[in-house]
Simulated assay, not measured.
Amino acid sequence: MKIAVMGMGVAGSYLMARLKDSEHDVTGYERMREENHDSICAWGTIKPVLTEFCKKTGRDFNDFLIHDGKNMHVKMNNDVKFDIGLKGLCTYDKLALIKDFIKDSKVIYGEAPKLEELEKEYDMIVDCTGFHRVYLPKLKEDFFLPTYEYKVEYEDKVPYDDFYIEPFPGMSGYFWYFPLGEKYAHIGAGDYNKQHIKATDDFLKKHGGKVLKTKGRPIRLATPDRCKPYYSGKVVGVGESIGTVYALLGEGIIPSMQCVDIFLENMHDFKAYEKAVEEHYKVYAKVFNFVRAKIHKDFSFLKALPDFIAIFRYMKKNEDRFGMNIKIADLMKVAKA
């Protein structure tokens, strides 16, 4: 087939690398110019999981690793502080890996062709445009958080030696500090109540540092069950365009790459792809309902208890996937804040 992959972010670039030696004729499109091509949002992921993804493309994830986490420092809005032991959570050079994934592929930069043009030329159009979902029908009802982030350089001592997060009241989002080596960090926040810029600027004012880059984008929390259709005509969505963000953490890197693998297993049968996506991400709906109820102040712990237990069991069973020690006491602190 002749395939167009739209958007060279996490999902699109990984898909390009996986299709590189296939029998298909694949062209990637990126609306940014090549010199401006960037990766929006923080560079946190789980080392063992990314290692396996990279192996599938003949790459060594260690070539892109920046910081291996040991503990995540957490401060709740009621001043409760605790540490979560980490087992794989790390930061990596996300942009460098994206560029490496597509370096030997045909990619057209600075263009976002109209759907009508693409349909004339290609047999399949894969929408990896993330939040914008450019080539799929618009969602009837979306749910997203605005985010804002600085890449900061510190002259002397960095504020924290490891990961640090500060959830906002009512689980409306959180502030993050992600270390990027000895002198650098990503600091930023996402917040439904739009306090994300203030929180980031307050941290910068308190701890100092030189701002090297400023980034901002919305992140979709609406889950796959709310993001249909996954396909329309020749177009099929992969990654955040169909809602593959884990709402409790705002994490989309691994879920989007998992979605690529699911797509590759079912790319010749869109109905089978839809069914596989629904099965893989079904717990995400419980997570979303839990978080949305907190944000909208429509939360009853007793009503939410079955979902809470399901979320805990899912994360506990998949500790290696989430890169941290999952304790019910820690989840309770977050849920009750």
Rank of each mutant, 00 (worst) to 15 (best):
Y230G: 08
A285T: 15
H37Y: 03
S172G: 08
M16Q: 06
A11K: 04
L86A: 05
I242K: 00
Y314V: 00
K282I: 11
G12T: 07
K20I: 12
L15K: 02
L65V: 01
E153L: 14
D161L: 09
E149R: 05
Q195Y: 09
R133M: 10
I295K: 03
K120Q: 15
G208H: 05
L115F: 03
M267W: 07
E116R: 08
K275N: 13
P224F: 09
I84K: 02
V80M: 04
Q195N: 15
D123F: 09
P224V: 04
K157L: 11
E251I: 01
L204V: 02
K75D: 02
D201Q: 15
Y160F: 15
Y92I: 02
E278R: 03
I309G: 03
Y160W: 15
H280V: 04
T57C: 15
K234C: 12
A112N: 11
S13L: 13
N71F: 14
M72Q: 12
Y177H: 03
D162V: 09
Y281S: 10
M267D: 00
G239D: 00
K75M: 14
G209D: 05
Y174D: 00
A185W: 09
Y281V: 09
Y135T: 08
H73F: 12
E117W: 00
I295L: 06
M315P: 04
L97A: 10
K75H: 04
T91W: 08
G323W: 08
A185T: 09
K70G: 14
V152W: 11
E149I: 04
H186L: 00
E117K: 05
G7P: 12
V152G: 05
A222M: 10
H132Q: 14
V158H: 02
D269M: 02
L19Q: 07
D261E: 15
R321W: 12
K20F: 12
L145E: 07
F175W: 05
G252E: 03
L65T: 07
M6Q: 07
G237Q: 01
L331H: 04
R18S: 10
K106M: 08
V10P: 14
I311E: 00
P113D: 02
F203S: 01
